[in-house]
Nucleic acid binder design. Structure first.
Length: 152
DNA sequence: GCCAACGTTGGC
DNA sequence: GCCAACGTTGGC
């Protein structure tokens, strides 16, 4: 899951313990949260749009999907006038801090042959939430120096 | 700041 | 339903 550290960094997540993954306004990313994610799913926390893009830590989904309240708040930058409470358009999950890691940079990820087909790294990918395969997780866990017992 | 890539919007 | 125009993402 990508986050701009200026908005919410791994340090912010650590300080807060958990954060609502609010503001996603892309249908594919929404579908992952609404339809595919479950409590306990592991998350790679990726810093984007910053000086050093890369994986900065580990997190975990810690709620079921629920409607993103900011879509109904006219004062929010994420307000969506076309979404109605009886049929919410945007859904989200809460994510909790697991661990901070040494930054695994985008350049390092790109240099890893075993990650060549990782969706995050595909040309033109802008999706803020992308799935990670078992094999990719194993490779990443090794690069991050973390236990491999659980998966994304 | 640039620009490639992509998603969304809206006229027809 | 097509598709051009526009806005956004995100690395560099």
């Amino acid at each position: 899951m990508k986050s701009e550290p200026a908005e919410a960094s791994i340090d912010d997540l650590q300080a807060a313990g958990q954060l609502p993954w609010t503001g996603v306004r892309n249908y594919q990313a929404r579908n992952f949260m609404r339809d595919a994610m479950q409590c306990g799913d592991r998350v790679l926390f990726y810093h984007s749009s910053c000086a050093e893009p890369g994986i900065a830590g580990l997190a975990e989904v810690c709620s079921a999907a629920y409607p993103d309240p900011t879509q109904f708040d006219p004062a929010s930058p994420y307000f969506d006038a076309k979404s109605r409470p009886e049929a919410p358009r945007w859904w989200m999950v809460d994510v909790r801090f697991v661990a901070k890691t040494a930054l695994l940079s985008l350049a390092r990820l790109r240099a890893e042959a075993q990650l060549a087909s990782m969706q995050l790294l595909q040309r033109g990918n802008r999706l803020s939430i992308t799935p990670v395969s078992d094999a990719e997780w194993t490779t990443l866990a090794s690069l991050l120096g973390v236990a491999q017992g659980t998966r994304a």
